[in-house]
Design a protein around this nucleic acid. Structure first.
Lengths: 368, 368
DNA sequence: TTGTAAGCGTTATCAC
DNA sequence: GTGATAACGCTTACAA
């Protein structure tokens, strides 16, 4: 009724109801004990004044905000938006709000976000760390006692729970499937940025373990594992890194197909890259899977609808978020057990984009 | 250094630095005037104690939180995740945090979210309203003086800024392109839920204006407009609403194609529905665009990579978010001009999925 | 430039 | 069950 700016406060309500502020507060906040009669009176007064609680004041004294901070690379990326969905569902189910920050893989932005969020006194933090190198801010958070869970990327130096996927095993399984079908010349589209790609540009991808925190690197390692298993040399021409966008994968694929002994199969390390590979094959007039088999990562919604339907490594994306949030809530509730590290399983979903290797001439096999 | 729980406060820092709390606060908060020397002293003391500001306390006294509340239907939906991206970029650029709530199109959840967010004293609210029917909570917000901007859906009863797309014109343009190419039997896959669909189940979609706030309804109206323009009767068999998921669109498409005079073109009202239509055509062995032309909404990343590349109505999705956020920031900065309603333009992107109507027998034309 | 002291709107601790 | 009153950590007149 009374539409004053700055709205009514508990003392206002108390005055109108003819009780003390303490009583009014108890009635409005549903704590302590209040008689039914006063509760009613206070409720009416509050309604009449259009009273709205002030969470800030409450948080100041209770020391809890019922808010979680979430720091991700890029919410526009379907992977992260599904992770966030998992987080959000669990959080809201438990009565927590979610404040979100995009880092765009910038470590500085991340550091700043973590600072701002702790200053806002979030009850806990979910972070998908941009860089495994600079982690002092995360260590600081963990050690300062703010509950923290690492999402999708684990960093050993940070003593916090984590939820990740076994990227290495996933890529290995996908590559194994291809070698089983006789493929020996298998292209890998990684999307790694220049710096990272250079680090791996050593023969046989041997630089890779150093950066296993990195999702892409883990997958690349799995690819190598599978090749080594069947005694195939890892050749650097077959590993291309042009960037993470679709157009980059188009270029990468064309580059692969223009090689002297072009690959008979391609593994694309995420769904956008797979999309680009698919587009490139179409543009080149190369038939999939007849001429080239294609395997992607992430079971995006289009993978089943395209022609041919794409064989993919599916990750439990939403569960990454929900599990992480669940762990965080346990910490917030007071759990003090040592850091937990959940590794979720992936699944190879076989659809139409993979076929046995064409023309498996013995000579070719040996030469690759 | 000193890792006490609950961390250091301004008085602690002040004591260590040998100054008053006011001075310390001024130094730490970068306001008022402090001599370089004291600033230095205070800074050192703060570092030594591991001081972190408490935004809650600051907000209590300043009355501003530098936080925006964002209420959307479903962050997992690529459309909303891109809207959010637009919001987030503008917000962070201006020093605001974003707290996000998913409503899943539930009006109750939305109402509750709005309450919680105002109690948290967000500086402004961006809402994509679930239901045009129950809007008292939004009116309340607007009238209580909390800046509010409606995103992607306008509600006339709520006196707030809004940013939307001209869905009707967009669908009309797409349909017009099809009629220009000689198509007369044009299927529409709307995805509307049962209740809504029923309301429109009157001949010629004449119930549609009543719910024009609804995105889907606006598009359906545009479809009708274009047909009416060329004197084609709107036939209800050609308008199917099986739901919003891909599988629903698959069913819907198969239903359309099994009609006596099956459509020669299909308009799918969002990107997931287009995906389903595409899948269904493949499963049916119907060639696109030779047998049936297909137009979708939203320029999703896969639309250019599939075979054939999909003709779509592109919306400036991210700009919906960024514009909305910009308007909100203006309000927060104190603008008191009357509500602004931005209507963003869409663009028909013609790719390979549309071709002239096959076998345009005069008889068929008239009969539809 | 610096210090004193009065709030901001709650909850929490006591008495009664 | 109810009422004073002291925090919570900060900003902000106002004075010095």
């Amino acid at each position: 009724m009374d539409e004053r700016r700055g709205s009514a406060t508990i003392p206002d309500v108390a005055r109108l109801a003819g009780v003390s502020t303490a009583t009014a507060a108890r009635a409005l906040g549903n704590y302590g004990s209040v008689s039914a009669a006063t509760r009613e009176k206070v409720g009416q007064a509050a309604a009449a004044l259009g009273y709205r609680a002030n969470s800030l004041a409450r948080s100041m004294v209770t020391g809890t905000t019922n808010t979680l901070g979430v720091v991700l690379s890029d919410i526009e990326n379907p992977f992260f938006s599904r992770v966030l969905r998992g987080i959000s569902d669990v959080a809201h189910g438990a009565g927590f709000e979610v404040v979100l920050v995009n880092t765009d893989e910038s470590s500085d932005t991340e550091r700043n976000a973590v600072r701002v969020l702790t200053e806002k006194r979030v009850d806990g933090l979910l972070v998908c760390p941009a860089d495994a190198g600079s982690t002092d801010h995360l260590r600081w958070v963990a050690e300062a006692g703010t509950p923290l869970v690492l999402v999708d990327r684990r960093i050993r130096q940070v003593p916090a729970d984590s939820v990740v996927v076994d990227n290495r095993a996933a890529a290995r399984a996908a590559t194994q499937r291809l070698t089983e079908l006789g493929h020996r010349r298998i292209g890998l589209i990684t999307g790694m940025d220049g710096e990272l790609a250079e680090r791996f540009a050593v023969p046989g991808l041997r630089g890779i373990e150093r950066a296993l925190i990195n999702t892409t690197a883990g997958r690349a390692a799995g690819y190598r594992d599978a090749l080594v298993e069947v005694g195939v040399e890892v050749r650097s021409e077959y590993v291309v890194s042009e960037g993470f966008r679709r157009e980059d994968a188009v270029r990468a694929t064309k580059q692969l197909m223009s090689l002297d002994g072009p690959p008979t199969a391609i593994l694309a390390l995420d769904s956008l890259l797979a999309l680009g590979a698919m587009q490139a094959l179409r543009e080149l007039g190369v038939r999939c899977p007849d001429d080239v088999s294609l395997v992607g990562f992430d079971d995006a919604d289009w993978t089943e609808a395209v022609t041919p339907p794409l064989t993919v490594v599916a990750q439990p994306v939403q569960r990454i978020g929900s599990e992480a949030c669940r762990l965080l809530l346990e910490r917030i509730a007071g759990s003090t057990r040592p850091p937990v590290h959940r590794v979720l399983r992936t699944e190879l979903i076989e659809r139409g984009s993979v076929a046995p290797a064409p023309r498996p001439h013995r000579a070719e096999r040996l030469s690759s």
